[in-house]
Each structure stands twice: as structure tokens, then as C-alpha cells.
Computed example of a mutant assay.
Amino acid sequence: MKRIGSLIGLRAEHIAEYKRVHAAVWPDVLKQIGSSNIRNYTIFLREPENLLFSYFEYVGDDLDGDMAKMAADPVTQEWWTVCMPMQKQLETAGEGEWWASMEEVFHQP
């Protein structure tokens, strides 16, 4: 299992809408997350900085392949067209990153 953490900004004018859509994530999006070997996927919001922190556990053996399958899924792509305009990429995100990756520095099993 691999633990993944990432960070992105949330535009202040979209906070309520972001919470609303995530209170009722589309069933096919949830199904795709599960079939991509992702477990315990959680998103936290930190206000007033308006930062989103995501955490999930990857239980497969081909992270890049599973992420590519998720990215190719039409329903997931549609979901992202709803969510991405509400988000704000961090200036420090790496090349090709939407959500900025984070280094795990501590874990208590």
C-alpha cells in the first residue's frame, strides 16, 4: 500500500459549491476511484487559506497505469470539468501536476 497526499487551492467564491458537489459525488466517479485501487480517499478544506488537502491509499501495483485509466474515463473527465474551475493550482506545483504532490514524513500505523 502507498499513501498519497496532495494539495491545491480552492477559489473562495466556490467554497460552498465545492462542498455541495462533494456531498453527493456521482456514483460512477466513486466506482472509478475504487476500480483504480484507491481506498480511504479523503479531501480536507483549510480555511481561511482555502487549501484542499487530499489523502488516499493506493493498493494496486501500477499507480501510473491506474491513474491513466481514471483520467481516460469519460465520467471522471466530466466530473473534473465541474471541479477544476473551482480549484486553483499552487504556484509551486511541479510540471504536469494539477494537485501538488507531498512528501510523507511521518506515519503511525
Score class of each variant (00 low, 15 high):
Met84His: 08
Ala23Ser: 15
Val25Phe: 05
Asp73Thr: 06
Met84Lys: 13
Gly94Met: 09
Gln108Glu: 13
Gly96Ala: 03
Val25Gln: 04
Ala72Lys: 03
Cys83Ile: 15
His22Thr: 00
Phe56Ala: 02
Asp28Val: 05
Arg11Trp: 09
Gly94Pro: 00
Tyr18Ala: 03
Glu95Phe: 04
Gly96Leu: 04
Glu17His: 15
Met70Gln: 05
Thr42Trp: 04
Ala16Phe: 09
Thr92Lys: 11
Leu90Ser: 05
Trp26Glu: 12
Arg11Ile: 12
Asp62Ser: 11
Tyr41His: 01
Lys31Asn: 12
Asp62Tyr: 10
Trp80Ala: 12
Arg39Pro: 09
Ala16Glu: 15
Glu103Met: 13
Ala93Ile: 11
Glu91His: 12
Lys19Gln: 15
Pro27Ser: 01
Glu78His: 08
Pro48Ile: 04
Glu104Gly: 02
Pro74Val: 04
Glu57Cys: 08
Leu10Tyr: 01
Phe56Val: 02
His14Val: 07
Ile15Glu: 02
Gln89Ser: 10
Gly96Pro: 07
Gly96Ser: 09
Val82Asn: 13
Thr76Trp: 08
Val75Cys: 07
Trp80Tyr: 13
Glu47Ile: 00
Arg3Asp: 09
Met86Ser: 08
Gly60Ile: 01
Met1Ser: 13
Met1Lys: 08
Glu103Trp: 08
Asp62Gln: 12
Pro48Arg: 07
Pro27His: 06
Val21Gln: 03
Lys88Asp: 08
